[in-house]
Design a protein around this nucleic acid. Sequence first.
DNA 1: ACCATTCCATACGCCACAGTATGGAAAAGT
DNA 2: ACTTTTCCATACTGTGGCGTATGGAATGGT
Lengths: 169, 169
Amino acid sequence: MIADQGVRATAVEPLARRMGITKGSFYWHFANRESLLDQALRRWEEHDSRNLNMAMGAINEPRERLISLFRRVGRERLTHRVFSALCAAADHPQVEPVLERVAQRRMHHIAQAFSELGFSPEQSAHRARLTYTAYLGFLQLQRQHQAPHLDSRTFEAYIEHVIATLVPA
Amino acid sequence: MIADQGVRATAVEPLARRMGITKGSFYWHFANRESLLDQALRRWEEHDSRNLNMAMGAINEPRERLISLFRRVGRERLTHRVFSALCAAADHPQVEPVLERVAQRRMHHIAQAFSELGFSPEQSAHRARLTYTAYLGFLQLQRQHQAPHLDSRTFEAYIEHVIATLVPA
DNA sequence: ACCATTCCATACGCCACAGTATGGAAAAGT
DNA sequence: ACTTTTCCATACTGTGGCGTATGGAATGGT
């Protein structure tokens, strides 16, 4: 489940080499490569779904809920790297529907928070979409940097700017 | 140069098949696969750079310049699809530096426009980054949809919302 | 003790693609 | 007319990954 360096890490033979085992062993546990990816993705999607519900259910005040979401981008690096790796494989037929469902769920929750702030359904949908695309775009931008890209001070400032811009006072 | 269905379309043999030719012919024109991709990327980057300068130089008023940029997302579909395909291959060692340079150039121009609107260098950089990530995220979101996703009316409304949010009145 | 099931290794066939070697036809130079 | 250069095809090697076949050791049930 540590496929943070790309979905192609689920290639059977390299993966088998990396662990101490061989292909023969692998094909006893899984029907094929597709099956492994399928199970991994299913587990990840469930985990992500639970995470989302917990994060959104923990805070009642919608404004604070949104802000905590933005702040979360800086923390839990591994989580975001895994997700980013999946985004990089959006063209993969098995990955694409997962990303699609996850995006729908996340945007729905974000839109819900905006709704509670008094925005119309259309306004909320637009704001949720813009918020989520800003997140996706940020990850995309990170993928293009091999270097660590932003020092933490600039990063913090940027996050604050995003909050100020996207979350109405 | 119509590699809009993925960078992996530059695989030698399939590409040769798709045209009427064979590998033997290909390897006379190019040293190897890497060379082809390199030339294609170089051409694209130059073309993109020119395009950017033209688009930004055509309009004096910085606010109108930014707005026209947003509106451009709906038009010139092919251009965006090509760029989106490149973004999907951001992990590719030859593509990554190109995307990085292009991102720097584009964000620099956007930041320039915000500067002209009276924002500080830091503010302009943040706004440019957010603007560009919104664009990247939008493309990412498109990649996750096989379906055409947004009807044009909703799309127009969304673009207007983004303009209203990111470009100060 | 015997047998079946579990888990893993070795070995094989298959395919897709990268890159090379070689030859041959057409065009161009002299 | 002869040779060279240009452009392309056929055929080969090599590599890497997917999936299968088969056997063997350990474990557990009876």
